[in-house]
Simulated assay, not measured.
Amino acid sequence: MPLLQISLRAGKPDAYRQAIFDSLYRAMRETLNVPEDDQFMTITEHEPANFRYGAAFGIDRSDELVFIRITVFNTRTAEQKKALFRRIAELLGESPGIRSEDVFVNIVEAALENWSVGNGLAQFA
């Protein structure tokens, strides 16, 4: 039940943004065993004045940088997370064509009882 929040600079066409959604969903299905149709993602676009990044950690980023925050159950292994990072970079490189240097991913883990996916219920508690 991942929840994705994607941030990028404004101005990309619909097809570009949809390719991001598709690539991220595929990467999660392949590495985290996310169920079919488990797609909860948003993209937020930012004007250049509201989008800042640096070259920390020796990575030469560009204005094509995409920030991806994935909130998931706290049940995934380190190996699954590493595989997810690799697969996201690969698939975003293929479509829509984002350089791996411009793929910034952060996983936030939440306990099962911290989720309500509708109807005011704690479905996983």
Rank of each mutant, 00 (worst) to 15 (best):
D102V: 01
S116Q: 08
L121K: 15
T42M: 15
L3Q: 02
Q18C: 00
N119A: 12
G118E: 09
E109P: 11
R29M: 07
A27S: 11
Q123N: 07
V108G: 03
T77D: 01
E64S: 10
T77K: 02
R17F: 06
Q39C: 09
A122Q: 13
L91G: 01
V108P: 00
N33P: 01
D14V: 12
R87C: 11
Q39F: 12
S116F: 09
Y25W: 09
V105C: 06
A125D: 14
M1K: 07
I20Q: 07
D37W: 07
A27H: 03
D38R: 14
R9T: 12
E64I: 03
G11V: 13
R99K: 08
G58Y: 12
P35K: 15
L4F: 10
R61L: 08
I43Q: 05
G97V: 09
N114Q: 15
D60T: 05
F85T: 02
D102A: 00
I98Q: 01
V72R: 02
T42S: 14
V117F: 15
V105E: 00
P2D: 08
A49M: 12
V72Y: 00
A55W: 09
R26A: 13
F51R: 01
V66N: 07
F73N: 04
T77Q: 02
V72M: 05
I43M: 00
E30T: 08
L84K: 07
K81N: 11
R29S: 07
A89S: 15
K81G: 00
F104K: 03
S62F: 11
V34Y: 01
A83W: 00
L112I: 05
A78L: 12
G58S: 14
G120D: 11
A19M: 00
A49D: 15
E36W: 11
I98H: 02
L92T: 06
Q18I: 04
L91W: 01
K12A: 02
I20S: 09
I20L: 14
V108D: 04
I6P: 13
Q39D: 09
A19G: 04
F51Y: 12
E90N: 09
L3Y: 03
I59R: 11
F40I: 14
N106D: 08
E90S: 05
E90R: 06
F21S: 14
R29I: 07
N74E: 10
G54C: 12
K12F: 01
S7F: 03
R99G: 00
R99E: 04
E101Q: 04
I107K: 08
F21I: 14
P13Q: 15
L65F: 03
V72H: 01
L4C: 12
R29V: 10
A89C: 13
L3I: 06
G118K: 10
D14E: 10
A125G: 15
I43G: 02
G118I: 11
T44P: 01
E94W: 09
S95I: 06
P96G: 00
V66E: 05
R17V: 13
A89M: 12
Y25R: 10
A10F: 13
S23P: 04
G120E: 08
N106M: 14
I88R: 01
L121V: 14
V103Q: 03
P2S: 06
L3S: 03
A15Q: 15
